[in-house]
Amino acid sequence: MTNDVILRSRVRIARNIKDYPFPPVLNDACRKEIIEKVTTASAGHGYINDDKIADAVYAHTLSEENLISREFAAEKERHALLKNEDCETYIMVCEEDHLRIQSFSDGLDLAKAGERAIECEKLLSKKINFAFNSDLGYLTRCPTNLGTAMRASVMMFLPALTMTHRMGDVKTQLEKIGMTIRGMYGEGSNADAYMYQISNRLSLGHSEQDLLSKTAAVAKRIAEDERNARSAAFEANKDVLTDKIMRSLGTLKYAHVISSKEFLDCYAYVRLGSVLKLCDVPCEKLDKLLYKAMPAHIMMLRENAENSHERDKMRAKIIKEYL
C-alpha cells in the first residue's frame, strides 16, 4: 500500500555551464554548442536524444506526465531532451537553466531518485565545467535555486485532507519549515484530482542529503495525516462517501462524452474508493489511466482530436477500455 498516498518521487538538479549566459539571453549558436557538450558528455552511458520533442503534442504528453516542465514543452528556441534507456532520468537542455536533470522513482523513494540524479550530474561533470561559487554553490538563473540547486519533490494524493479543508494548514506548516506545496502541474496550477507536489523551497545552506531526508520525512508525516483523515471521513460519512465513489465509477464506466475536468473529479473519488477497498479497480491501473485521458495524450492517438468535443468522446472511450 505504498502508493495509497504517495505516487512518485522526483529529484531535480539545475546546472549551468561556465562562461555562457543563461538560456533566455542565449543565442542559437551557443544553444547548439551546449546541446553538443551535453550529448558528448553523456554518450555511451545509455542516454538517447529524444528528438520527438520538436513535435509540440508529443512534448505536451511528457509535461502531462510531469517528466518535463510545461515551459520546456512550449519552448520555441533551440532545446533538447536526453533521457536514459530506463526513462528514469531526463536531462532538459536549455530550459531556464542550461541543464535540468530530473530523476524519478516510484512511491516514496527520494533516496533513489536523488542517487540517480546525482549519478547523472557526476557523469556530466567529468566533461563539463559547471558554474560554481564556494559561497553560493551551483549558480542558477534564479537566485532561489542557488546552493545545491536541488528540488526534491513528492507527488501526493490527498483527497481526505482536501475534503476536510485542511490543506490551508498543511500549506502554512510547510512554508514555516522552508517547504512548499503546489498542484500537480506546479506553480499556480490547481490541485487537480487532489494530487499535490510537496518540495523544498530553499536549496542554499542545506546539503543534498539533508534536503532529501527532510522532504521524505515531511511527506511521510503528511501521508500519515491523510490516512487518518481517510479513516475518520469514512467512519463519519460511510454511506455518503460510498455513494459518491460508486457514482463516480459509474460515470467513468458509462459516460459517452467526458471533459477533462469531470474525468479528474470522478477519477479522484474512484482512486479513493480503490484505496479504501470500496471498488475493485487497482490503483496501478488508475495511475496509468490518469495520463492516458489527458488532452495531449488523446491528441497523440487521434489527429482530429484537436476538436474538444471529439476529444471528450475519445476520452470516454479510452477510460472504458481501461476500467
Binding site: I118, S125, N129, F130, F132, N133, S134, D135, L136, G137, P143, T144, L146, G147, T148, M150, L202, S203, L204, G205, H206, S207, E208, D210
Partner: peptide, 20 residues
C-alpha cells in the same frame, strides 16, 4: 548588490553540499 537579497531569500549565503 545581490548578497543581501540572497541572504533574505535563503536565510544564509553559505553553500553546504556537493562541490565540483
Amino acid at each position: 548588490e545581490l548578497g543581501d537579497t540572497i541572504r533574505s531569500i535563503h536565510g544564509t549565503a553559505k553553500h553546504v553540499g556537493r562541490t565540483p
